[in-house]
Amino acid sequence: MALTANQQRVSRRRSTWHISRVAWPIAAFVIFLLAWEALIRIGDYPAFILPGPVAVAQKFVRVFADGTLLRHTGVTFIEVTGGLASGFTLATVTGYAIAKSPTLERILTPYIVASQAVPVVAIAPLLIIWFGTGITSKILISALIVFFPVLVTTITGVRSVPQELYDLMRSMQATPWQIFTRLEVPASMPVLMAGLKVGATLSVIGAVVGEFTGADAGLGFMINLADGLFDTARVFVGVFTLIAMALLLYGAVALLERRVLAWQRPTD
């Protein structure tokens, strides 16, 4: 099937757009690696203070090959996704209830603010004592840190639904459930997606804070252990893997957002 001139123009524009989107970050990364290597050469730092990119790459291959990296990454990934999913779910349900009920807002607000006034690092040891050093405590810590920003965005989202659209739905005899599914959910989706993005990054932080406090597996645990052994290259491997995980998660949410909010950028 032959492409029309217009379609060709569109596909060409798309492909150049893709290349520039991928090419620039890669170029920046290569420059970063070169600068790093140059710094090592000039400063001549010992490996336990700052290992070079080559040493880190070698370490990466080693911990990857012996399965250590995958095991710890798997544990952290479960904690992060579990924390994000449970924190997000709990926050949206609570947020919706608060947005709809001023009474509930008055009752719950002091507790929610109090829970935010205490830093998560201060609560983390308690959760470890109560729920053990396994993944449950990390999921809870991660969920806790995800909870508040998502709660706030949910309340904002639900309250931003225009009154006129409620009137419209009522004038068409919509049931409360129809108002929820056909109006409130789609109307608050933009704000909700923003909350999910913030939550995605915070969930990684939450899991790592938990692993640093007390754990027997996970990337945070691996980093902590390697740090104690002056195995700085392994610390770098852990940190880079965490960064990759956070980027991946953020990318997945951004992709989801593009799909869910496709109506916000109609193609003309």
């Binding site: 009137d167 419209l168 739905m169 068409m172 919509a174 049931t175 129809q178 056909r182 789609p186």
Partner: peptide, 28 residues
Amino acid sequence: PNVGQVFQNANLMPWRTVLENVTLPLEL
């Protein structure tokens, strides 16, 4: 349902196409 209403602002749902906006009353 005997009464149809049009407001000053069109009050369309921005996430729905024209067709989906128009079908809304029957969908409900």
